[in-house]
Design a protein around this nucleic acid. Structure first.
Length: 466
DNA sequence: ATGTTC
């Protein structure tokens, strides 16, 4: 009996040695070679039947290998990405295409689309839309679960608020910065804090206190709170066409959502150890299993929390102004939705993409000094009822800091009369694609109803405090 | 995006 005999029976790797060892025990016991070979053949065919006795170790190893192979086969990527449509391909870098191609090779993917603001992200590109079946990808939603926009339009002339009063109001009634929350005496209650989902998982219970503290705050990065002039070009939205004072915010689910995202991304990666390294950050959770259902519960709560967060920011500002907004619009742009696609219910991930079903209102911001647009969706099926979530970066943060001259950044603001509170050069308008180009590339996806020109903008100050 | 990563 030698290795050649064993290999011929189909044993591989460490199983060859285990088979040889078992065979020699049988030989010592006086078994005939043909009988041993038949026994080995039987163990190879059905290891589950031989988990005790002389072949036990070999059978266990075979069984583990089979389970691993099954898992690997289940996770294998398609040879070619499924086809998907792209809007504004001339505005999109190669890295974003490569990430989308990988996403469309996932065995769970069914459809997808790339928006004109697309750029590199973790896993799915920012500006990526992906429909999957029975699966949700934490990094297909993104780190800032429920990141969203909200606009309040006041039936007041745009000039009702001067730069000085607006500045003071923003300083007093908005909070920026990583880890930042409201002092206990300044906190407001919101029904989202009474959601029973907070008690559905130890993780959510653990994050509740942080969520209470941070409700009504703006965070950091590209998040902002700004006053500006809103020009409504279409009537019929509770307001006649015209120019108005308005308040616009971009914020998300803060530390709560970030920790939910981190937890479930690690869990998904752990559950797919054999996933192709190129798709590692696209690891998914099965929505028919507990892990996927837990993520869905947590993600939904984070989405609600983010909207509540905006509501409080706007409520504080409205109270300080002593006014009530006449028109309010909001939309999430980092979330997954259950959506019927070609007659089948799928999970549609929008990671930096605005829902744009027929008639649905949305907000697409440009940059700290460029207009944000109020849009109405046209419900294009190939875009999975989506549009861009903004202008999209054309320079990464580090590249922006290195290449944009400070004077050009300040000149861009000055030319548009923008007062900036906080904010860094990594968020300079020059770091973003021109939002007008991005809108032009998706005119078939959304109709523009109005535009908002920022005037007093607050962002996180980073290191240089204000 | 987040206050600091299985």
């Amino acid at each position: 009996m030698n290795g050649k005999h064993i290999t011929k029976l189909g044993f591989t790797g460490a199983d060859i040695g285990l088979a040889l060892a078992a065979a020699s025990v049988r030989e010592d016991a006086g078994a005939a070679r043909d009988d041993i070979l038949n026994e080995l053949r039987a163990v190879h065919a059905s290891p589950a039947q031989h988990l005790t006795g002389v072949y036990a170790t070999l059978a266990a190893s075979l069984q583990a290998r089979a389970e691993q192979d099954a898992l690997h086969a289940h996770d294998a990527l398609r040879a070619q990405p499924l086809p998907y449509r792209v809007w504004g391909a001339h505005l999109i870098d190669d890295g974003a295409f490569a990430q989308m191609n990988t996403a469309m090779r996932l065995p769970i993917s069914r459809a997808g689309a790339l928006m004109p603001d697309a750029h590199l992200g973790y896993g799915l590109p920012i500006g990526g839309v992906l429909a999957t079946q029975h699966a949700v990808i934490p990094y297909g939603v993104g780190v800032d679960i429920g990141c969203s926009m909200r606009l309040s339009v006041y039936a007041l002339p745009a000039a009702s608020l001067d730069a000085r009063s607006g500045t003071e109001l923003l300083h007093r009634h908005t909070r920026f910065g990583a880890g930042v929350g409201w002092e206990k005496r300044d906190r407001l209650h919101h029904d989202v804090l009474d959601d029973p989902a907070w008690n559905a998982q130890p993780l959510l219970r653990h994050l509740f206190d942080k969520a209470v503290t941070q409700l009504g705050t703006s965070g950091s990065g590209n998040h902002f709170a700004e006053f500006g002039t809103f020009t409504l070009t279409h009537g019929g939205l509770d307001l006649p066409a015209g120019e108005y004072l308005a308040f616009l915010t971009h914020s998300g689910s803060r530390g709560f959502g970030a920790q939910v995202a981190g937890h479930f991304t690690r869990l998904a990666e752990h559950l797919h150890p054999h996933l192709d390294p190129a798709a590692r950050k696209l690891a998914w959770l099965d929505t028919r299993q507990q892990e996927g259902q837990d993520y869905w519960t947590a993600m939904t709560l984070a989405g609600q929390y983010a909207l509540a967060n905006h509501e409080q920011i706007h409520a504080r500002v409205a109270r300080a102004l002593g006014e009530t907004p006449t028109l309010t619009v909001s939309n999430s742009h980092n979330l997954a939705w259950k959506q019927v696609v070609d007659g089948q219910e799928l999970i549609v991930h929008r990671k930096g993409a605005t829902p744009a079903a027929e008639g649905q209102l949305g907000l697409i911001p440009g940059s700290m000094a460029d207009p944000a647009y109020l849009v109405r969706g046209r419900g294009v099926p190939d875009a999975l009822h989506s549009a861009s979530h903004g202008a999209g970066r054309q320079l990464g943060r580090k590249a922006a800091e290195k290449t944009i001259p400070r004077a050009e950044w300040k000149a861009y603001l000055a030319q548009r009369g923008v007062t900036l509170l906080g904010g860094g050069i990594d968020e300079a308008p020059q770091a973003y694609k021109r939002v007008q180009d991005v809108l032009a590339a998706q005119s078939d996806l959304v109709e523009v109803l109005g535009q908002f020109q920022p005037q007093i903008v607050r962002m996180d100050s980073g290191s240089e405090d204000i």
